[in-house]
């Protein structure tokens, strides 16, 4: 096909056939509107909802544990700190839920939308992953405190195994999310390269500025939490 006009004519001729063969009735639209999305946004929102649910459970159970372990100052303190952490993470996840919806519902141009999504994936999503993983660990800890209770003493048969499993669970959840999200990130980056490669370079430079700060914040938080849990278990193995 040497002349592009032939291609243009072919395309126009398809229009009539498409409109003759396809039709959008209100039933089809209503069905589509109530259908669940299959996209990355839906899966992200689902994960955040799961994080909100587990944090809500841990808030409720830690609140009860503070009352139940009133006679044990160490476990009360641990429960109070865990409760505060759960309460702080909840509005954070709600905020992220609304941020993702905002990006998804905006009518930015394709390039700007992909840039917004890549920025979200690189800047906010890593912390969201950790918040969700932390939520699951906190919920498990709160339920264990509730059930492994011997007259106000916290009792675990194998403390170090329990601690190890908590840390492994946390790490596995984060790794799993990371692997899944990186697939989508790769697709967005490819689309952006095809649209405007220089935009990717500009954005990479912007993201690099904040990278070390975010990493430092994350490392300090994780070390703090892990140290807290280890100290807690060291103290309770004597009970």
């Amino acid at each position: 096909m040497s002349d592009f006009n032939e291609i243009e004519n072919l395309w126009k001729s398809a229009d009539i056939k498409i409109l003759a063969a396809e039709s959008l009735d209100s039933e089809t639209v209503k069905q589509a509107i109530t259908k669940q999305s299959i996209g990355i946004t839906f899966n992200l929102l689902k994960s955040i909802r799961a994080g909100i649910l587990v944090l809500t459970i841990s808030v409720a159970v830690f609140t009860y544990n503070i009352y139940g372990y009133a006679g044990n100052s160490l476990i009360s303190l641990f429960s109070i700190i865990s409760l505060i952490l759960s309460i702080l993470l909840l509005p954070y996840l709600f905020y992220q839920y609304s941020s993702i919806n905002k990006i998804d519902q905006s009518d930015l141009s394709l390039e700007n939308l992909i840039v917004a999504k890549i920025k979200y994936f690189k800047m906010s999503l890593p912390l969201v992953r950790h918040a969700i993983a932390m939520g699951f660990v906190l919920m498990t800890l709160s339920i264990n405190l509730l059930t492994d209770n011997n007259k106000g003493h916290f009792q675990i048969n194998n403390t170090w195994l329990f601690l190890g499993l908590m840390i492994i669970a946390y790490v596995l959840i984060v790794i799993m999310f990371n692997l899944i999200h990186n697939l989508y990130l790769k697709q967005y980056r490819t689309a952006l390269i095809d649209l405007n490669e220089s935009k990717l370079t500009e954005m990479a430079a912007e993201l690099r500025k904040h990278k070390w700060m975010r990493l430092l914040f994350l490392v300090i938080t994780l070390l703090g939490v892990i140290a807290g849990i280890i100290i807690f278990f060291l103290k309770t193995t004597g009970n």
Binding site: T28, V29, A32, I33, K35, S37, D104, Q105, S106, D107
Partner: peptide, 18 residues
């Protein structure tokens, strides 16, 4: 069919922003 449903859903979700 899947993509059509997904596009319509996304259009509806974004419509308040139009």
């Amino acid at each position: 069919d899947d993509l059509k449903q997904e596009v319509i859903l996304q259009l509806w979700k974004s419509y308040p922003g139009f």
